[in-house]
Amino acid sequence: MTNELVHARIEQQRPGLLVGYETAYDGMLSVETSREQIGALLEFLRDDELLQFHFLTTLCGIHFPEEKDRELCVMYQLHNWRKNIRIRVKVFFPVEDPHLPTATTLWAAANWMERETYDFYGVRFVGHPNLTRILNVEDLDVFPMRKEYRLEDGTRTDKDDRFLGGEGHEGRQFD
């Protein structure tokens, strides 16, 4: 089974589900769909008797701050163990309104992955049974993997990098 066959099968069985597709740099088929269609597409990919993408390898968020109304992206990677072929599904949506239907109804494994995506990017998965922070402390009030948040700990007081071309840490007064 090849990427072309997979793409042709999706277009033939469910026309209109895909927004775009490409073969990525690593030779994997990468398809893009819309927020409304993602649930139907994932279900089709899992249940179609020819495609059989029955295994959810990973699911994660991506942040593109420059792209207007396409800032946030959620990427699913599916794997067909019988034919050993993989597919990548991407959904883009604006950062102001980050919500997406959950995939936990299709794969139980999506539970923690979606919690992680919520934790780091603030994507709300509608229908998720327990959408709370998973890796970070629970009272954190930012979504740290978005590009606008800085890497370093803001409360740190023992580092003065002004002489190395930095501007010191925010909120710290140097005397």
Partner: peptide, 15 residues
């Protein structure tokens, strides 16, 4: 519960 040695590796790798 997980995340007790979360070291922000992804964010480090970005920078």
């Amino acid at each position: 519960t997980i995340g007790y040695i979360h070291r922000a590796f992804e964010k480090l790798a970005e920078h």
